Deep mutational scan, measured.
Amino acid sequence: MASQGTKRSYEQMETDGERQNATEIRASVGKMIDGIGRFYIQMCTELKLSDYEGRLIQNSLTIERMVLSAFDERRNKYLEEHPSAGKDPKKTGGPIYKRVDRKWMRELVLYDKEEIRRIWRQANNGDDATAGLTHMMIWHSNLNDTTYQRTRALVRTGMDPRMCSLMQGSTLPRRSGAAGAAVKGVGTMVMELIRMIKRGINDRNFWRGENGRKTRSAYERMCNILKGKFQTAAQRAMMDQVRESRNPGNAEIEDLIFLARSALILRGSVAHKSCLPACVYGPAVASGYDFEKEGYSLVGIDPFKLLQNSQVYSLIRPNENPAHKSQLVWMACNSAAFEDLRVLSFIRGTKVSPRGKLSTRGVQIASNENMDAMESSTLELRSRYWAIRTRSGGNTNQQRASAGQISVQPAFSVQRNLPFDKPTIMAAFTGNTEGRTSDMRAEIIRMMEGAKPEEMSFQGRGVFELSDERAANPIVPSFDMSNEGSYFFGDNAEEYDN
């Protein structure tokens, strides 16, 4: 993207840094990872977990959730003011799984939030270390993106479920800051804005008074975040219109849905970061690795190297396929839920299948599930090659597409044709070009129609051997075009429920 120079890199967003050079960025990201790792080690000690239990991804998720809940100030305040039966607002906890007599047992633990905050700050040299908290939120978000298709949420806001490739980060909490905003897809931002506008339509006082002023500035800020994701002048001009509207209503909703559809071809720039579970960072720190000293990046080879040398386990339900569970977590670790499966298959070195073909449910185990038949197995999170994460949407291309997802959002900077089903997408653009945004709409449609099938995206960008740390010898991959490109292809993934 041309304006790259004016933006802070995501590592800076990730670490609240002012302008830093590459070495400083690597050190501050490393410091953040160190903090998460030290916190995780301490929690495993508190909970008396064995090494194996500490490497269980379900335990990692519970521990991450506990610290996120302990620092969720708004919710904590709300819980104190609106006490609900049987919930102690000062405590947080969740299921911890232990191996007892050759069987997995679930144990519900409860801790004072104050105590968890103390352990977290102690692991982070006394700081609140917001960057580390956001990092864990993005890992949870990436896992949700890989596990669930947001059909219901899309339909509720009037969008087409086939636009799911635009929904990265749709389950990120509001408090995820600049680093969170960077990884949100165009569809996620559109959905947040539509929800806001709908509230304004239904509630006369939404934009009024002292609160209304705050609401208005939040609305304009979200519009600017979305505008910054678009790469064409016409899309940005249309966002200006939406932002400046005196009284946002149905016309703005129409414009936003139009823009979301246009992003299936004229893709937005959305950041991709490899955020790993805390149970990967903990053992690495415990083994003596100093992330701050060595430096770390979320968008280069580092996460690949770390996963190459990590042992992570997962509980497996009786009829689940461990290899499929591994694929789910591998995609989440690489922030690749909406990437082209052919690119992923090449990088991973084994075939990556669409969601609907995987015999696996989510990673988390519900409290009512029976533990008797639970097994555990090693997650295979290694890769054959590594590639640089991208934040450009890439230019655009036609490809055989599917009944489910009709476009992709690249996660890796790797040369390819970008699949999208042009006739299906263009069919949504018939007729409606009147109104105050008509010239911009016409211009956007013209650009979409001009998108050429034979153009290559990320020209000359390749993948790298894991021994090639400096990215000196790019390998331009070859793809098996007979395979499906979309992950949520004609899909039956479970729906995400809060």
Rank of each mutant, 00 (worst) to 15 (best):
G356P: 10
G185F: 10
R8V: 08
H272W: 11
L266K: 10
E14I: 07
V100W: 10
S486Y: 05
R389T: 03
P161R: 02
G17C: 00
N473W: 05
E11L: 01
E252S: 11
A218F: 09
A70E: 02
I25H: 14
R106E: 10
G249I: 06
G485R: 13
A85K: 00
S413Y: 05
K422Q: 04
I253T: 14
N473F: 09
G288D: 12
S269W: 10
A284M: 02
L466R: 03
S176N: 06
P453N: 15
E192L: 08
N250Q: 08
R317I: 03
R8Y: 11
N498F: 00
I347Q: 09
S141R: 12
A428D: 14
G209K: 11
L306C: 08
K325M: 04
F346K: 04
I265P: 04
V285W: 07
R361S: 08
E254N: 12
Q364M: 03
R216M: 07
A70W: 09
K48V: 02
I265N: 08
S314K: 12
Y281D: 09
L133H: 08
E11F: 07
S345D: 02
A233G: 00
E18D: 00
E107L: 10
E53A: 06
K214C: 08
L379I: 02
L172V: 09
S438A: 15
F458T: 07
G300K: 11
A131C: 05
A451Q: 01
Y487C: 15
N319G: 14
P474A: 01
F338M: 14
E114C: 00
K48S: 02
F71R: 04
E369I: 07
T151P: 01
A332Q: 05
G356L: 06
E369L: 02
D480M: 06
A373M: 07
K325N: 05
R38Y: 13
S377K: 07
A237D: 01
E73F: 15
A153G: 02
R118A: 00
Y10D: 00
A403M: 15
F464N: 06
E254F: 12
S407R: 07
S60K: 04
D468N: 13
E64S: 06
Q399W: 14
L79C: 02
Y148A: 11
G209N: 09
R150T: 04
L418N: 10
A129M: 00
N321W: 09
V352W: 10
E11K: 12
D240V: 12
A403H: 01
G431L: 00
G212L: 05
A332G: 12
G187W: 05
A27Q: 00
I194D: 08
S170A: 04
A179H: 10
E494G: 15
P89E: 06
M167E: 07
S245Y: 11
T147W: 07
K198D: 08
E107W: 09
G209V: 06
L306S: 04
C164S: 04
C44V: 00
Q58H: 03
M238F: 06
K325S: 06
N124I: 12
F291E: 08
F464S: 13
K357F: 08
K227G: 11
L56S: 15
G35V: 06
S269A: 02
E449V: 12
S413W: 10
L341I: 09
A2V: 05
E292P: 05
G132K: 13
I41F: 14
P83K: 00
G282I: 12
F206M: 14
G450K: 14
L166G: 14
R389M: 11
A336R: 05
R361Q: 08
Y219P: 10
A129W: 09
T151R: 05
G228I: 06
R8H: 08
G393F: 10
G209F: 08
Y281A: 09
V285A: 03
G300T: 08
C44A: 00
K293I: 04
Q459S: 00
R65L: 06
A263C: 03
N250M: 08
I265R: 04
